[in-house]
Design a binder for these strands. Structure first.
Lengths: 110, 110
DNA sequence: AATCTTTATCGTAATATTGCAATATTAAAT
DNA sequence: ATTTAATATTGCAATATTACGATAAAGATT
């Protein structure tokens, strides 16, 4: 097997899983970190920042883009990647909501 | 290959990646959802809630536990699993922090 | 003690992910 | 028109993940 049974779960569950899965690799976290650090939108030097080969970085960027965590716009012969604010806002709400739900039932168990 | 180069990234990056990776599967999100829904700490009926076989659920629980997202205490011949509040608080801070950083540089790019 | 209940582990098959060299693509620069 | 620079794609090997049947382990029940 190895194939996830996505159809058995709710849309919200699948959405959160997709987003967190996309972030679930240190290289991809590092890319997000870098995009947050540089003040202007970066245009290509992520490869130099990471200890990974160019095709590998390109693949990670693709995954982040597919998940909607970053956007990429062609700019000349390079590409301008940047954070997709809306998606991160959504993630923040997910976790804020979870924390609220946790708060409500404090000390009810272990 | 297929082996992640964790040693090339910062502790924070690896930590966030580990936590999000652990959440990066709809079954594991569903488990967390269920633990948040039931008011008392659950003691075993997660298997009935999920469209997955018992060994598969057990494996997902193990991963959530390894990542520190849930705790499990033996209680009679069953086990009481519940949310680890501290870890979720940490996750919330991670994303709140990211959102703050995004806010600071709004409209600087794409 | 024998049985039941609950959870974990083992073994294994199917699939997915990670990483990179080689190559392709595309636009800018010469 | 060639060359250069930046990024993407392809193909492939190594490893990891997902899922489950079979079985084990351990406390509860009879």
């Amino acid at each position: 097997m190895g194939a996830t049974k996505t159809d058995h779960f709710t849309n919200k569950q699948n959405e959160l899983a997709t987003l967190t899965k996309a972030l679930g690799h240190p290289a991809r976290v590092a890319i997000i970190d870098y995009l947050l650090k540089v003040n202007t939108c970066i245009c290509g030097d992520i490869v130099n920042e990471l200890p990974l080969a160019q095709p590998t970085v390109s693949q990670h960027l693709k995954e982040l883009k597919n998940a909607g965590l970053i956007k990429g716009e062609i700019e000349g012969n390079s590409i301008c990647y940047c954070i997709d604010e809306k998606t991160f806002a959504k993630l923040q709400h997910f976790f804020a909501n979870i924390s609220t739900r946790i708060e409500k039932k404090k000390n009810n168990c272990c």
